[in-house]
């Protein structure tokens, strides 16, 4: 799908650690991916898989001394953000890379009108005065289809419904026409009907502005209709990545199979769901070898000892971190 589109974000071999009282927490290990113009990349995984931390690293909001990026680089249009002076780094956020959060109520300042919070993008980055910025905020609220925007801009976050609050977050994020939009579980806190409205709005904006969209989710169903590519994360590492259709149709990693089997499916109502047995490992005690081996139905002795590297599947755009990827793929096909 990436024919001639410019690569916007390039993450190479990123590792993030947190110092906790229980020891070093390895949140992300050796993560690499790219995001191009007009492309939607979904990062999938259970909670604690490191997907949110990888995004915090991208936004530059991991704080030393507890959180530390131990290796790797994050490039935006070729410039490494990790070696940038912090004062310049702040300016990238909002202007070039913007983000919307899972819980919009918590992510909005409770004591400021939403018009002011959206308008802050203009006062902060463009030095525009408050009154004028407020007018821009109303235009943006109209753009994300918030009814009676001129009146509602004077309201506080708690006076809106969940869906409307998420629209306010989106309006804020797209204010300065960023090249990359990151959405961290944007629909998790919403009703199913509102979920699809928000997803539709996001894809519409992505197409309209040719943005790169990074969608973080634990819900394979939500991203199925929107994403071009998926990264499946487990214990801070990529298990499998590639074009969404191919990964969903013929998964090449037992973990992906497990995730797909645990989605409710309308077509096969008589079959019982098959959740993955066991729990994800604690990030302070990731098992040796393949981190998924204690829960893996296809694990062999090698998996207990040797960490499989993420290797390309020949003749495809896909990669899998499984010692038995070919067998898994053959079984799936």
């Amino acid at each position: 799908m990436t024919h001639g589109r410019e690569v916007l974000v390039e993450v190479n071999n990123l590792s993030v650690e947190f110092q906790t009282t229980e020891g070093v927490l390895r949140a992300v290990t050796g993560l690499s991916y790219t995001v191009s113009q007009g492309e939607t990349v979904a990062i999938l995984g259970e909670s604690g898989s490191g997907k949110s931390v990888s995004i915090e690293a991208l936004m530059g909001i991991i704080d030393p001394p507890n959180g530390r990026i131990t290796s790797g680089e994050i490039r935006f249009r070729g410039t490494n953000l990790l070696t940038m002076p912090t004062t310049l780094r702040h300016r990238i956020n909002g202007e070039h890379i913007a983000m919307i959060f899972q819980d919009a109520l918590a992510a909005l300042n409770p004591s400021q009108t939403v018009g002011k919070q959206i308008g802050e993008m203009f006062t902060l980055h463009r030095g525009i005065r408050h009154r004028e910025a407020f007018q821009y905020a109303i235009e943006l609220m109209n753009r994300v289809r918030i009814p009676a925007a001129a009146k509602r801009a004077h309201c506080y976050p708690h006076e809106f419904s969940g869906g409307m609050r998420q629209r306010i977050m989106i309006a804020t994020a797209i204010a300065l026409e960023p090249e990359v939009l990151i959405a961290d579980e944007p629909t998790t806190a919403l009703d199913v009907t509102v979920q699809s409205q928000i997803m539709d709005l996001l894809t519409e904006l992505r197409t309209e502005r040719n943005m790169g969209l990074v969608l973080i989710s634990h819900d394979l169903g939500v991203v199925a209709d929107v994403a071009d590519r998926v990264l499946v994360m487990y214990a801070g590492q990529i298990m499998e990545c590639g074009p969404l259709r191919e990964v969903y149709r013929t998964p090449s990693h037992p973990y992906t199979i497990g995730l797909l089997n645990s989605i409710p499916n309308n077509q096969s109502t008589q079959e019982r769901l098959q959740p993955i047995k066991g729990l994800p490992p604690s990030p302070v005690a990731i098992p040796p070898g393949c981190p998924f081996h204690p829960r893996c139905p296809s694990a062999i002795e090698l998996c207990h000892r040797v960490l499989p590297s993420l290797e390309k599947l020949p003749g495809t755009n896909r990669a899998s971190a499984c010692h038995r990827k070919h067998e898994v793929l053959d079984n799936a096909g």
Binding site: E56, M59, G60, I61, H90, R91, I92, N93, G94, E95, A98, M99, F101, A107, L108, N109, E120, M121, L124, H125, M169, T172
Partner: peptide
């Protein structure tokens, strides 16, 4: 965190 993601 959201305010920092906005660029401050």
């Amino acid at each position: 965190r959201a305010a920092r993601a906005k660029g401050m």
